[in-house]
Deep mutational scan, measured.
Amino acid sequence: ETQAGIKEEIRRQEFLLNSLHRDLQGGIKDLSKEERLWEVQRILTALKRKLR
Results as ranks from 00 to 15, higher is better:
Glu1Thr: 09
Glu1His: 11
Glu1Ile: 09
Glu1Cys: 11
Glu1Gly: 08
Glu1Ser: 12
Glu1Trp: 12
Thr2Val: 09
Thr2Ser: 07
Thr2Tyr: 11
Thr2Trp: 14
Thr2His: 08
Thr2Gln: 10
Thr2Ile: 09
Gln3Asn: 07
Gln3Gly: 05
Gln3Thr: 12
Gln3Arg: 10
Ala4Tyr: 07
Ala4Leu: 08
Ala4Asp: 10
Ala4Asn: 09
Ala4Lys: 10
Gly5Pro: 03
Gly5Thr: 12
Gly5Ser: 12
Gly5His: 14
Gly5Phe: 14
Gly5Glu: 15
Gly5Trp: 15
Gly5Leu: 13
Gly5Asp: 14
Ile6Gln: 01
Ile6Thr: 02
Ile6Trp: 12
Ile6Asn: 01
Ile6Ser: 01
Ile6Tyr: 02
Ile6Leu: 12
Ile6Glu: 01
Lys7Cys: 10
Lys7His: 13
Lys7Gln: 12
Lys7Gly: 02
Glu8Tyr: 06
Glu8Leu: 10
Glu8Met: 07
Glu8Ser: 08
Glu8Thr: 03
Glu9Phe: 05
Glu9Ala: 10
Glu9Arg: 04
Glu9Cys: 08
Glu9Gln: 07
Glu9Tyr: 03
Glu9Trp: 03
Glu9Asn: 03
Ile10Val: 02
Ile10Thr: 00
Ile10Leu: 02
Ile10Gln: 01
Ile10Ser: 00
Ile10Lys: 01
Arg11Tyr: 06
Arg11Asn: 04
Arg11His: 03
Arg11Ser: 05
Arg11Met: 09
Arg11Asp: 03
Arg12Val: 07
Arg12Glu: 04
Arg12Ser: 04
Arg12Gly: 02
Arg12Pro: 01
Arg12Ala: 05
Arg12Met: 07
Arg12Gln: 08
Gln13Gly: 03
Gln13His: 13
Gln13Arg: 02
Gln13Met: 15
Gln13Ile: 15
Glu14Asn: 02
Glu14Thr: 10
Glu14Trp: 07
Glu14Ala: 04
Phe15Leu: 15
Phe15Asp: 15
Phe15Arg: 12
Phe15Lys: 14
Phe15Gly: 08
Leu16His: 02
Leu16Ile: 13
Leu16Arg: 02
Leu16Gln: 03
Leu16Val: 06
Leu16Ser: 01
Leu16Pro: 01
Leu16Lys: 05
Leu17Gln: 03
Leu17Tyr: 10
Leu17Cys: 04
Leu17Lys: 04
Asn18Trp: 11
Asn18Pro: 00
Asn18Met: 14
Asn18Ile: 14
Asn18Gln: 15
Asn18Asp: 13
Ser19Cys: 12
Ser19Leu: 11
Ser19Met: 13
Ser19Asn: 07
Leu20Lys: 00
Leu20Phe: 02
Leu20Arg: 00
Leu20Gln: 00
Leu20Trp: 01
Leu20Met: 03
Leu20Val: 01
His21Asn: 08
His21Leu: 15
His21Phe: 13
His21Arg: 14
His21Glu: 12
His21Cys: 15
His21Thr: 13
His21Gln: 14
His21Trp: 14
Arg22Gln: 11
Arg22Pro: 02
Arg22Ile: 08
Arg22Thr: 09
Arg22Leu: 10
Asp23Ala: 11
Asp23Met: 06
Asp23Pro: 01
Asp23Cys: 12
Asp23Phe: 06
Asp23His: 05
Asp23Arg: 03
Leu24Ile: 07
Leu24Cys: 04
Leu24Tyr: 05
Leu24Ser: 03
Leu24Trp: 04
Leu24Lys: 02
Leu24Asp: 03
Leu24Ala: 04
Gln25Leu: 10
Gln25Arg: 10
Gln25Gly: 05
Gln25Val: 14
Gln25Ile: 09
Gln25Cys: 10
Gln25Lys: 10
Gln25Asp: 08
Gln25Phe: 07
Gln25Glu: 08
Gly26Pro: 04
Gly26Arg: 04
Gly26Asn: 13
Gly26Gln: 08
Gly27Ala: 07
Gly27Cys: 08
Gly27Gln: 06
Gly27Ile: 05
Gly27Thr: 08
Gly27Leu: 06
Gly27Lys: 02
Ile28Tyr: 05
Ile28Trp: 04
Ile28Asp: 11
Ile28Gln: 09
Ile28Val: 13
Lys29Val: 12
Lys29Met: 06
Lys29Ile: 15
Lys29Gln: 12
Lys29Thr: 09
Lys29Pro: 09
Asp30Met: 02
Asp30Ile: 03
Asp30Val: 03
Asp30Gly: 03
Asp30Pro: 02
Asp30Phe: 02
Asp30Trp: 02
Asp30Tyr: 02
Asp30Asn: 06
Asp30Ala: 03
Leu31Glu: 13
Leu31Thr: 15
Leu31Pro: 14
Leu31Arg: 11
Leu31Met: 08
Leu31His: 13
Leu31Val: 13
Ser32Arg: 13
Ser32Ile: 14
Ser32Lys: 12
Ser32Tyr: 12
Ser32Thr: 08
Ser32Pro: 06
Lys33Asp: 08
Lys33Val: 12
Lys33Ala: 07
Glu34Phe: 15
Glu34Pro: 02
Glu34Thr: 12
Glu34Ser: 11
Glu35Ile: 13
Glu35Leu: 11
Glu35Asp: 06
Glu35Tyr: 13
Glu35Pro: 03
Glu35Lys: 14
Arg36Asn: 05
Arg36Cys: 05
Arg36Gly: 03
Arg36Leu: 11
Arg36Glu: 08
Leu37Ser: 07
Leu37Phe: 13
Leu37Ile: 15
Leu37Tyr: 14
Leu37Ala: 05
Trp38Asn: 12
Trp38Glu: 12
Trp38Ala: 14
Trp38Thr: 13
Trp38Phe: 11
Trp38Lys: 14
Trp38Ser: 08
Trp38Ile: 14
Glu39Thr: 04
Glu39Ala: 07
Glu39Trp: 07
Glu39Cys: 05
Glu39Pro: 00
Val40Ile: 12
Val40Leu: 08
Val40Gly: 01
Val40Asn: 02
Val40Ser: 02
Val40Ala: 07
Gln41Asn: 05
Gln41Ile: 15
Gln41Phe: 11
Gln41Tyr: 12
Gln41Trp: 15
Gln41Glu: 10
Gln41Met: 10
Gln41His: 12
Arg42Ile: 06
Arg42Lys: 08
Arg42Pro: 00
Arg42Leu: 08
Arg42Ala: 12
Arg42Phe: 04
Arg42Tyr: 04
Arg42Trp: 06
Arg42Asn: 08
Ile43Gln: 08
Ile43Glu: 07
Ile43Thr: 10
Ile43Trp: 03
Leu44Gln: 01
Leu44Glu: 00
Leu44Val: 04
Leu44Ser: 00
Leu44Pro: 00
Leu44Ala: 00
Leu44Cys: 02
Thr45Ser: 11
Thr45Gln: 10
Thr45Tyr: 08
Thr45Arg: 13
Thr45Lys: 11
Thr45Asn: 09
Ala46Lys: 07
Ala46Met: 12
Ala46Cys: 11
Ala46Phe: 09
Leu47Phe: 03
Leu47Tyr: 00
Leu47Val: 01
Leu47Lys: 00
Leu47Met: 09
Lys48Cys: 07
Lys48Met: 06
Lys48Gly: 02
Lys48Phe: 07
Lys48Ala: 03
Lys48Trp: 11
Lys48Ser: 01
Lys48Pro: 00
Lys48Leu: 11
Lys48Asn: 05
Arg49Glu: 15
Arg49Cys: 09
Arg49Asp: 15
Arg49Tyr: 06
Arg49His: 10
Arg49Phe: 07
Arg49Asn: 13
Lys50Gln: 13
Lys50His: 04
Lys50Arg: 04
Lys50Cys: 13
Lys50Met: 08
Lys50Ser: 08
Lys50Phe: 04
Lys50Glu: 12
Lys50Tyr: 04
Leu51Trp: 04
Leu51Pro: 00
Leu51Thr: 01
Leu51Arg: 00
Leu51His: 02
Leu51Gly: 00
Leu51Gln: 01
Leu51Met: 03
Leu51Ile: 04
Arg52Leu: 15
Arg52Pro: 04
Arg52Gly: 12
Arg52Asp: 15
Arg52Gln: 15
